[in-house]
């Protein structure tokens, strides 16, 4: 029997609510008209950036639950993850919710990972309402992975800007909203890149692998989707993915794009684009969901990528493994 990577959700789990919250810089980017909430201050009234990130997740979870017209007590399971060590933002945020919790780590692919896991559980009829959430914060990621904020260094042109933002959605067995129809769980792929400033090149082979598997397993082609969107490959990474796919004989056309590449305007000097869990999570839960509800898109392949990086392993000379999970979200019947 062939190994299973792609699953189809016959019982059609529905995304009945979604919510996005972003920082001030992100609030001036290309998706500014779609976000639910734009923070005035990237500390969000908290003492530290870590606490701000935790509060963002809480805010996004509550927002999504309210938009789904539910109460927090209606939620059975919370699936969440973030970039910080021991995924503290998610786990600490989960203290305030009286439901079961699974912490996930898929780096920047966490949004798709949580939807894929959540949809599987809902489709199986095991849980009724599952909340999927993730967040990232520029200032917490910088200090964990790179340099202090006030250090006067220059960033290389391949580096990306970690998005300050959180996104959440509520999956349910029935209701109104976009439907998760299938998911492809990705493999860990490492093609020997060890440049911590070039995440796009790390993750592009993983995206290629998952994309090929998905097209093969579902017997679809890029033309079957209104939008194929990767998470945060950035400008360089998405160009690499297009090249890699072309080598495999699949041409990605105008319906392919990358959240990181689209996120910021040219004037915002974000170099290769946005990155972080919050990047694709906020785009999915604002722009893409609205377009699915409006009927502009009918079928979207959402496939965020993650660089499963640790600063310790990178300093020890290890190359960086990447991963990509894909979920197909379709417009539901009205």
């Amino acid at each position: 029997m062939a190994k299973i990577q792609t699953v189809k959700f016959k019982n059609r789990p529905v995304i009945i609510g979604s919510y996005s919250i972003v920082g001030p810089k992100e609030g001036q980017g290309n998706f500014k008209n779609y976000f639910d909430y734009i923070m005035q201050d990237d500390r969000f009234g908290e003492k530290t950036y870590e606490q701000a990130e935790k509060k963002m997740i809480q805010h996004a979870i509550i927002g999504a639950i309210e938009k789904a017209h539910l109460k927090t007590s209606d939620v059975d399971l919370l699936l969440a993850g973030d970039l910080l060590n021991q995924i503290i933002s998610s786990s600490y945020a989960a203290r305030d919710f009286s439901c079961a919790y699974l912490g996930l780590f898929g780096a920047c692919s966490t949004m798709a990972e949580s939807i894929a896991v959540g949809a599987s559980l809902v489709n199986g009829g095991l849980f009724n309402n599952v909340v999927c959430s993730t967040a990232s914060h520029f200032s917490t990621a910088e200090r964990q992975f790179r340099f202090p904020l006030e250090l006067g260094n220059q960033r290389p042109p391949t580096s990306q800007w970690t998005v300050t933002g959180a996104g959440s959605c509520v999956l349910a067995q029935s209701g109104k909203g976009p439907i998760v129809t299938s998911a492809t769980f990705g493999k860990v792929i490492d093609w020997g890149i060890n440049d911590v400033n070039d995440m796009g090149a790390v993750m592009a082979p993983a995206a290629m692998d998952t994309m090929l598997t998905h097209f093969r397993d579902t017997k679809t082609t890029p033309d079957d989707y209104d939008l194929i969107v990767t998470g945060d490959l950035g400008k360089l990474g998405s160009e690499i993915l297009i090249d890699l796919m072309e080598d495999q004989g699949i041409k990605l056309g105008l319906n392919y794009n990358d959240c990181g590449q689209m996120y910021f305007t040219r004037e915002q000097s974000a170099l290769s684009g946005g990155s972080g869990c919050g990047c694709c999570a906020t785009v999915l839960n604002s722009f893409i969901m609205k377009k699915l509800q409006d009927g502009k898109y009918k079928k979207v392949l959402f496939m965020p990528t993650g660089a499963l990086m640790s600063t310790t392993a990178a300093q020890q000379g290890e190359t960086i493994p990447g991963i990509c999970h894909a979920v197909v979200i379709e417009r539901g019947e009205e």
Binding site: P157, W191, G192, I193, A201, L236, E239, I240, T319
Partner: peptide, 17 residues
């Protein structure tokens, strides 16, 4: 070999300062 080829490809593609 694949990793080496990929690394060379990426190196050529990276925008230079």
């Amino acid at each position: 070999q694949r990793n080496e080829a990929y690394n060379n490809y990426v190196k050529a593609k990276i925008p230079k300062t």
